[in-house]
Write a protein that binds this DNA or RNA. Sequence first.
DNA 1: GATTATATGGTTTTT
DNA 2: CCATATAATC
Length: 777
Amino acid sequence: MRNYLNELNEMQKQAVLHKDGPLMIIAGAGSGKTKVLTTRITHLMAAHQVDPFNILALTFTNKAAAEMKERIEHILGTSEARNLYIGTFHSVFARILRTEAPKIGYPNNFTIYDTDDARSVIKTVIHELNLDDKQYKPNVVYNRISAAKNALVGPEEYANDYHLQQEDAKANRPMLGQIFVAYANRCFKNGAMDFDDLLIKMYELLKHYPEALSKYQHKFKYILIDEYQDTNPAQYEIIKLLGAMHENVCVVGDDAQSIYSFRGATIQNILQFRKDYDDVAIVKLEQNYRSTQNILHIANEVIRNNKSQIEKRLFTGNEEGEKIKRVRTLTDNDEGKMVADTIQEQKLRYHLTHNDFAILYRTNAQSRSFEEALRRMGIPYKIYGGISFYQRKEIKDFLAYLRLLVNTHDDEALKRIINYPARGIGKTTLEKVSLLANEKNVSMWEVLCNAALFGFKSGTLESVDNFVTSIKMFQSELPKKNAYDLAILVGKNTGIVKELFNDKTTEGLARYENVQELLNSIKEFIETPLNDEDGEVGDKGLGTYLQQISLLTDADNDDEENADKVKLMTIHASKGLEFTMVFVAGLEETLFPNAMSINTREELEEERRLFYVAITRAKSKLVLSYANARYRFGQLQQNDPSRFLDEIPEEYVERSYSGQASRNHFNNGQQGTAFERMNRGFGYNNFSSAQALEKKKPSYLTPPPRPAVKEHIPSNNFEASSTSLLQEGQKVEHQKFGFGQIVKMEGASHNPIATIHFEQNGEKKIMLNYAKLRIVE
DNA sequence: GATTATATGGTTTTT
DNA sequence: CCATATAATC
């Protein structure tokens, strides 16, 4: 075994050698916290003979967990590390709940709703309460409910809280509490938990079931938590319960990198930690091993502007390094081009690989211009985030079948697939089923199973019965077949695969390939050994598979880890990563800091921490760029440079400009257009090429809005006449459009089309086979 | 009931 | 500009 202690500095060593009792490690950016965590676990196992089964480590992504495991195995030279209980809060708790769920009234095979599923349930619930989804936007409602859950406020408590009622009344959403209650009930009825429930239900389990609490307290003798600054109160309380027996809780965090308060995370958890445990040992890691002096210096200067923070002083022994580049471009497209050009140039000049570069931005929508520019130059790239594989429609549809097999109460899954592929069960039928399900307080599936009792039309009844029969057939195969064979069966039997295969459009092809990829991933799942321990979850069943994929993080599914590609991602997604050269793009007011987050000091400071995180991803080269104008909502919009740029001392910065005409933006002397030269040195004056660039669409190009149909109340004696008698010139009455005169008759005799001029609604073309017309004269 | 055209409205970040 | 919701048309 390697002598791992020799690889640590003094403070790092302290953190590793501290054995029992609570420990808080304040670890600055690039100070080697992952190394400390892995070494600490290694040391517990190797020097103190702590059984890995008794160690719980919670990380931010599954990938980080896997990496840690790997590193530990590597140092130890054994495979013992695979027995560690390690993963994200959500995946670890999901795993535990998989066995414990019945205690709190959920089935073992509970479904995990992702954000889309949750929003969809909320929407249904809003409609069922006869509320308007314009007033109660599902997204807003979801966020509100999520915030409540993360603060451990349950639905009843929420609905009965006076202050929350006042607040919601003011915000014109007085019924939010009721929606929350209904939503929670519906999820429960569906046997489903959303992301937040994985924390809440874990908490309830430990809180209300002493045996369960005792079991896991005994099991987890040592607890380690990474990225502690991004934990929320629910997570805090769970850890408090779990760690209460041994108090061997080690947390690692950096308040300066707290960027998830929108998810309920609070720095309070760091402050509270010291109060809740006796004798908390505190270790500060302040030496940065990642960045050049210049980069670290401006990072420190920026974060200094935040009022609330824990005292610390980051330093580095690294070289001074290059100055920071600050580049102004005219538009977002120019910004993309500038970045791509620079990557090409730097790559050649310094013999860098594509892997050395990362482009970071505030919002996912910004990726477009970089993508285009990189593709045009033939530079390989990979975008992280955005719509992930498992959110694609074809994937969700396919998975919905599997979800329904495992848990027939999952109405969301059922709704997705009941008419996919089309089998003649439409909106009307679905609404009826939903209504009946609510009335009888059963799942929609149960209504379908007894469809004959509820008087559906014979045609629909047949379709429903066919659907029920085939799902039941799949279910009967559940115990016999493994997840992969079952998925194949579903794909074949439903005709989904064939249907996608026959779609020869580009998108259709992509969808077919995606489904194939999904099948491959299922195959891979059943072929990978799972470390089952003490008879717990070790099955290779469909349920386990579905749970696993629903909790994958974006960072987890990068296919070819070592592929030499430029990486594009949001700053949030870049947390914990490092790159030789980093571009932070879109440093403009309203974008970064984002307009949504400048209303309070707290929000603004979080934006600044985000900027801090972005800067500290860079090892040796950093480019900060902004565009004078960029397309947002399809329109060119002007923005001032970000206020954060002003917080960087000028002597560390090299400014340059890049517009349409100038190619070399670094050290480009007196080149560039006259326009650019005249504007040089005025980084934040309000000059606007944007106005010149903006091509105002002439008004005659935008079609006039379609006139609203003027309401027509059919005459009392309205009765559709036979259309075969119609002739030009006749006066008619239409049920909706009112009175009019036939201008023209055309079309084949079996499908005649009449052009009718209506008094109230103008000329319309009407297909006589479908329209109901009364001949007036 | 399904398919296609149009309207609307929305962007912060994610387990 | 984009994706989704609603309406028109088949």
